[in-house]
């Protein structure tokens, strides 16, 4: 049957195309992993082989024991987790207000948050540096947390709002008739139901804070409080030939981001539709 052969060919082409996308998406990450376990002496002789004839954990051992990367990792973790926590808390409050209240300032609040999403953050590098240095918040993780929180909170507000919107108002009203105050209804009914949404927001913000480079470069100059991106970049410019070690460090930087990605993967569509602006 011509028709069914055509259909089978179509299906094959579809699967092949999907496979191609998967390969292209994963190959750079695979290569990172591959070089990170290739012994340095084999790196040049087996440069383009798909898998080295021998593997080693030596690069990881070096990075973990003899470099500042554990420190960078810890700094990044502190900054990203704190930012995620602060942002999720603030965004939950504002998102709840937008979702559940009718008030005069609402349209202005939304407009204000949307506008801040539009203008280039690179504009703020110089003035933020000046302001933070005058109050002693450069070279400080707290300064980074403050800046990252502000950058990420508008998007998180819209994200949280979309999660609150998905919970029927009836539930709160039922709780209030059952004898709860508005706050109790929020804490006992709404919060438990938005926990997955809060986890997603946490994940989004964590990933964004974990990846930020330019402000960290500008605001941090001391090695012991560098975040991972800054540390990795200075490592690259200092020891530009230790590819195995660099890529081992890269894999380490990738791990938390991928973990959080898996956490939020389910919410990606909803999240991006809510903000539709964030990278």
């Amino acid at each position: 049957m011509a028709m069914s052969r055509k259909r089978i060919l179509g299906t094959l082409a579809h699967r092949a195309a999907v496979l191609l996308y998967i390969v292209v998406a994963l190959f750079p990450l695979y290569w990172l992993l591959k070089v990170s376990v290739t012994p340095t002496r084999l790196l040049y002789s087996e440069g383009v082989r798909m898998w080295p004839s021998k593997t080693t954990w030596a690069h990881y051992a070096f990075v973990l024991q003899n470099s500042d990367f554990p420190q960078f990792f810890e700094n990044s973790l502190i900054v990203s987790l704190s930012t995620a926590a602060v942002v999720t808390l603030l965004a939950a409050a504002a998102g709840y207000a937008i979702s559940r209240f009718e008030f005069r300032g609402k349209i202005w609040l939304i407009g204000f948050l949307l506008v801040t999403q539009m203008f280039p953050l690179v504009m703020l590098i110089a003035p933020i540096f000046k302001i933070l240095s005058s109050i002693g918040l450069t070279n400080s993780l707290a300064g980074l947390i403050l800046v990252y929180s502000a950058f990420n909170v508008p998007f998180a507000v819209f994200l949280m709002q979309s999660f609150f919107d998905a919970i029927p108002r009836d539930l709160e009203e039922a709780a209030m008739i059952d004898g709860a105050s508005r706050f109790m209804a929020f804490r006992q009914i709404i919060v438990p139901l938005t926990l997955p949404g809060m986890a997603a927001t946490l994940g989004f913000v964590f990933t964004a804070a974990w990846s930020e480079l330019l402000f960290a470069l500008m605001l941090i100059s001391k090695s012991d409080i560098s975040t991972f991106p800054v540390g990795l970049l200075s490592f690259v410019s200092k020891f530009g030939v230790d590819f195995g070690q660099m890529m081992a460090a890269g894999v380490l930087a990738l791990v938390p981001a991928v973990l959080f990605f898996l956490l939020i993967q389910r919410f990606l569509v909803q999240g991006l539709m809510a903000g539709a602006v964030k990278g």
Binding site: A25, L29, V35, L232, L233, L254, A257, V258, F261
Partner: peptide
């Protein structure tokens, strides 16, 4: 879907470095 969306989770500085290495004839294919 999870696999093809994975690059989005890669920190930007890391994807930059990764591709720089892929373009580098010493270690990249």
């Amino acid at each position: 879907q999870a696999l093809v969306f994975l690059p989005w989770a890669v920190p930007t500085f890391l994807s930059g470095l990764d591709w720089a290495w892929l373009f580098n004839p010493v270690v990249g294919p």
